[in-house]
Amino acid sequence: MGKSLQLVEALSPGQNLEAYVRSVSAIPILTKEEESELARSLFFDNDLDAARRLVMSHMRFVVHVAKTYSGYGLSQGDLIQEGNVGLMKAVKRFDPTMGVRLVSFAVHWIKAEMHEFILRNWRIVKVATTKAQRKLFFNLRSKKKGLNWLTNDEVKAMAEDLGVDQAVVRQMEGRMSSSDMAFDASVGDDDERAYQSPAYFLEDHSNDPARKLEDENWEADSNLRLAEAMGQLDERSKDILMQRWLSEQKSTLHELAAQYQVSAERIRQLEKNAMKKIKVAMLEA
């Protein structure tokens, strides 16, 4: 129990990052023979203590990788924590019979988790979604150390290197250079600044009589279709849906399993099948 707690604490840097770095740096580095023995114990015997030692002995490397991504304005502690997730995935998948060191295998998984974290959090609006865009994003980020825009020659060289159009490089550079704007006015903004927020440019349709009538008609039509679709179900399936979704006090799978004297998994299957029938019936109505 103590070893498991030690690993959990090591995976989360917490607020005192300097203390964390000192702590993981004090963990001894494994020799090639020690690493091979532990990796084989994990791979062939599922030795979890061996997995713990492999993870902890490589956490200093995660810290090193995280420092290379310091220019994104994100917390080093968060980057390290994400990198530790990648390290654990690598340890789980590491095959000691391939003849490579764990650090060479793990670097891909560590960077992959950090990349995902950066792309999720660097901007509210996603700047890169496809594999090609992600590669372009990180190449551009490493090139643009300053605030200056790329020259035409630099754009051309990067486009040729990555096999994309120059317009794609310019588009990604524009995305990276843009900043997020809050939708609503910030607390404390004066009237002049508050009216510049996007929220004030939206038209309020909440009291539009035509919109209200349309919503009411749509709700009535949906309720009618649902009632007709429910009428096509057998009594047990109908009752399961009623108790699971339409009652004020919703029943659990285990409560319904006890009521119908079947397994909870059987109730789940009946519920899933009934939902499919409802969906098809409402689309055909």
Score class of each variant (00 low, 15 high):
residue 6 Q to M: 10
residue 17 L to Q: 07
residue 18 E to T: 12
residue 19 A to Q: 09
residue 20 Y to G: 02
residue 21 V to N: 01
residue 22 R to H: 14
residue 26 A to I: 08
residue 28 P to N: 04
residue 29 I to G: 06
residue 32 K to P: 05
residue 33 E to Q: 14
residue 44 F to K: 08
residue 46 N to W: 09
residue 55 V to S: 07
residue 56 M to Y: 02
residue 56 M to A: 11
residue 63 V to G: 06
residue 63 V to W: 14
residue 70 S to T: 06
residue 72 Y to S: 02
residue 73 G to A: 06
residue 74 L to P: 02
residue 75 S to L: 09
residue 80 I to D: 02
residue 91 V to T: 06
residue 97 T to H: 04
residue 100 V to D: 00
residue 100 V to L: 08
residue 101 R to A: 10
residue 109 W to F: 15
residue 123 R to D: 07
residue 123 R to E: 06
residue 127 V to A: 07
residue 128 A to F: 02
residue 132 A to N: 05
residue 145 K to S: 05
residue 153 D to L: 07
residue 154 E to R: 01
residue 156 K to Q: 14
residue 164 V to S: 01
residue 166 Q to H: 02
residue 177 S to P: 07
residue 178 S to K: 10
residue 181 M to A: 13
residue 182 A to C: 10
residue 184 D to E: 13
residue 189 D to K: 00
residue 201 F to L: 02
residue 204 D to S: 05
residue 206 S to D: 00
residue 206 S to N: 14
residue 214 E to Y: 03
residue 222 S to M: 11
residue 229 A to E: 04
residue 235 E to K: 05
residue 236 R to W: 06
residue 239 D to T: 11
residue 242 M to C: 00
residue 247 S to T: 09
residue 255 E to R: 04
residue 259 Q to I: 08
residue 262 V to T: 11
residue 275 M to A: 09
residue 277 K to D: 07
residue 282 M to S: 02
residue 284 E to I: 08
residue 285 A to R: 13
